[in-house]
Design a protein around this nucleic acid. Structure first.
Lengths: 217, 217
DNA sequence: CCCCTTTCTCCTGTATACAGTATACTGCAT
DNA sequence: ATGCAGTATACTGTATACAGGAGAAAGGGG
């Protein structure tokens, strides 16, 4: 393995996204470029370039004379992104060769069944979920589609910390994944796509439940 | 109307996209930042920021130590983008309230019928096409989806100059639009979505035909 | 007492300067 | 003649410096 030669801008991007996922920033508030550059130990130039990059991904908002601002989070925003990702992943599965889907179906099923036992923390759940979807999309021939999905999922990480682990969530997620895998095993792609959409939309419901449980009126 | 206060970066972005649409740049070739900055009469900083922005939209590629490069164009790339846009626009129509669709259906039909007569140049065709799709998506409640579609369509402009006007293209496009509108008038949203996808996919075929006609073996 | 105006301060937007790296060219050795 | 090495050049990546505008605060007028 060759040593990683990453540009500073890329490192800043990933660092910012890590902190965003960890909830380090106050979403909706303005970004002070100099303060953030000092905090990260870099100059403003690569920082601004990273911020512009993240702006295109919807993590950051920008207003003409007022600079950058952390994009506000909301259940509606989450729901909007989930709708888009569900459609894009459905397209990806539909574009994948049926033989390729049949080939990965057994492993998908095994992953889904191994879900409940091996999961402890929230991070592990996310990891497992990512791996499942990654495998599911591995046969997609549309390169640009894969990029779009990855980009949109990155933006979703802002909501990671809200979707904390609970045994209930894990069991539901596992059963939904199993439904996708069994449909693919049977060669029923439309059913698999429907189950996939259901999985994503249930994610919206889960978030709303959690958000309301945290903020009692 | 207030005078437009646009940041230099935004002006550069639009200027570059105009030139890209006009075919001024050699797609696939490397970008010399200083040369381009001199040509545009700006400094490298806002230019680089514009290039980074366009990179996220797929118009430009970037390699770690080698800087920026115009993303190569290909029929496959065009087809990939069209697949994505078709899915996203389909989603947008599906998410729109049926009453809203019924409301705009007559105007859509009128626009589609007025197509053949009023069109002269290729630019006019594009404009009409844009207006039709804009109206079609006007009732979509998913803001982020609208942004994604707009961004992806911007990237499509690289192929504008290839899809030159021809009466054949205009007539086909008009009839496809009419199919969408009539389906919506009948309240049949799934049929409209199907017609919409067909419209986009035919666009792919049109491009391939044109490309092959231009480059005879 | 409140509102409007004016000034001042801070921050963004842009330009320029510097450093590091990739590539091309030239010269030497085989 | 060809291939390798060393150097030179040119371009990207990063830092810093400067200018202009937006927002806040203070002072004056109604």
């Amino acid at each position: 393995m060759s040593i990683q030669r990453q540009t500073l801008r890329e490192q800043i991007e990933t660092e910012i996204m890590e902190r965003v996922g960890a909830g380090d920033f106050d979403m909706g508030s303005a970004i002070n470029e100099v303060a953030l550059s000092v905090e990260l130990g870099v100059s403003r130039t690569p920082l601004r370039e990273a911020l512009i990059s993240l702006t295109q991904q919807g993590v950051i908002d920008r207003e003409s004379g007022k600079g950058f601002r952390w994009a506000p989070v909301s259940a509606a925003d989450f729901a909007e992104m989930v709708q888009i990702i569900a459609a894009l992943e459905s397209l990806a599965v539909s574009l994948t060769a049926p033989e390729a889907l049949a080939k990965i179906a057994p492993e998908l099923l095994a992953q889904a069944r191994g879900f409940t036992d091996s999961i402890g923390s929230s991070a592990e759940l996310d990891l497992h979920d990512d791996q499942f979807h990654e495998l599911l999309l591995s046969g997609n021939p549309n390169r640009r589609l894969a990029e779009s999905i990855a980009s949109m999922k990155l933006a979703l990480r802002r909501y990671e910390r809200l979707l904390v682990s609970s045994t209930d969530l894990i069991e539901r997620s596992a059963s939904e994944h199993e439904a996708i895998a069994t449909a693919l095993l049977a060669g029923d792609v439309p059913a698999a796509v429907a189950a996939l959409s259901a999985n994503w939309n249930n994610g919206t419901n889960r978030l709303i439940e959690v958000a309301e449980a945290k903020r009692p009126a």
